[in-house]
Simulated assay, not measured.
Amino acid sequence: MEYFAGLDISMEETRVCVVDREGAVVHEEKTTSTPEAIAASLAKAPSCRRIVFETGRMAPMLYHGLVALGLPVVCIESRQAYQALKSLATHKTDRNDARGLAHLARTGFFKPVHVKSLPAHAVRALINARKKLVGQRVMLENQIRGLAVVFGVRLPRALSPAFIKQALRASEGITGLSAAMEGLIAARAAVLSAVAAIDADIKKMAKASTICGRLMTIPGVGHLTALAFAAAVDDPGRFRRSRDLGAYLGLVPRRFQSGEVDYTGSISKCGDRRMRTLLYEVANVMLTRYRGALKLKDWALAIAKRSTMRKARIALARRLAIIMHAMLRHGTLFKAA
């Protein structure tokens, strides 16, 4: 007889449930959320054909750990699982969720998702840390600007050398304001130093990667975008067609159809928001700063002429995602002609 398991995972504990082909529970247990402990708990039950759990913060570590232990684990989309689990049990408990996931594993009524490799997650963590630090830098600069404008001082652009000099000059001789300015400026300097260190790491990693070197042959694609795209895709073979990248990154129009209603709206904005933003910036650079002859640019400018520049940037970002995936899949370089 075949057996199936469901894992309801939290930070500290995991609820394990094993059912047979008919849906009868044969094993239930609560264990710690580590691959070794979960494998030990599953070893107390008959060998399972499929083990299912939801996406979440613990999913990458547990998935790769359990796969390394030889267990047939499948990670499923949490939003889909939520709708199914809600219909299976009246009360939401860890025990009921584990049972519901086991029944999903038994029936096959789920959509498996790709779990990125741990190196890809490490790259994404570096990029996300940089984004947070840049946000903190902007927040500190806006705070400095806001304090100065109270005293009638308008500061120049924050990235210019005169920004700090004028900020310190505005606070001279004013008790309280001077200390506040110095503290904010010191914090800004520390954040800038951290951002510079991360930028150096990103540049080093991109230069050492042949994949990133291939992607950077596209005009406007730099170290950050190339590294982020390689980490977002992870395995090019998991996409059957390159044009699926548009939907994966949320760069295709949202559609709602019901009876006589058939509505096509703005882009779906699903998937990796940071990657979508980077591709939009590359499209903007290609359309406004790149001066070379490029058919891709001419195609996007034709869209802008009959529609808007914003739609042209989005269309070009989607086309760039498709091209970049094809380059990764086939190991080719970008051709401007």
Rank of each mutant, 00 (worst) to 15 (best):
T175Q: 13
F256R: 12
G220K: 03
V67R: 15
R291I: 06
L133K: 05
P156G: 06
T93S: 09
L126W: 09
S242R: 11
E12M: 13
G135Y: 04
L333K: 11
A194R: 12
H325A: 01
C75G: 03
S33F: 04
R137Y: 07
V150T: 10
T32P: 04
S268T: 05
I144K: 00
A196Q: 04
S266M: 10
I323H: 00
V150C: 08
A197F: 09
G146Y: 06
L249H: 06
K203I: 12
A170N: 00
R255H: 13
R310P: 00
Q143A: 11
R21S: 13
S258C: 11
A105S: 08
L118D: 10
A321T: 03
L316R: 00
K92P: 03
D201R: 13
R15Y: 15
R154M: 12
V16C: 03
M309H: 09
L215C: 05
G146K: 03
M139Y: 11
E141G: 11
R21P: 11
M1T: 10
A179C: 13
R274F: 13
E54N: 02
F4W: 06
L316G: 00
A206D: 02
G65E: 10
A40P: 01
M1C: 06
L227W: 07
L192W: 11
R157W: 11
G271V: 02
L296Y: 08
K203F: 12
K203S: 15
A81V: 08
M324V: 05
H91T: 14
D201W: 13
L249F: 03
S33L: 06
R240T: 15
N128E: 15
R255I: 05
A206L: 02
R214I: 07
E141M: 14
T90Y: 13
R169L: 14
H27K: 06
C212T: 09
D201Q: 15
L227H: 01
H330A: 14
A326M: 14
V67G: 10
A312C: 03
T210N: 11
R291C: 09
D94I: 00
A315F: 07
S87R: 07
V195S: 04
S33V: 08
M309W: 09
M327K: 04
M286K: 02
A24C: 11
T288D: 11
A37H: 04
R15I: 13
S171A: 14
G292W: 01
R15L: 09
V138F: 08
L155P: 04
L101T: 02
V19F: 05
L168Y: 05
V26E: 08
G222M: 07
E172Y: 08
A315C: 10
A98S: 07
K204P: 01
G331F: 07
T34E: 04
I303M: 05
F239R: 05
T308Y: 00
N284M: 15
Q166M: 08
F239S: 02
H27N: 03
K295Y: 14
Q80M: 13
L101Y: 04
I303F: 07
D272W: 04
M11E: 12
A208H: 09
A230P: 00
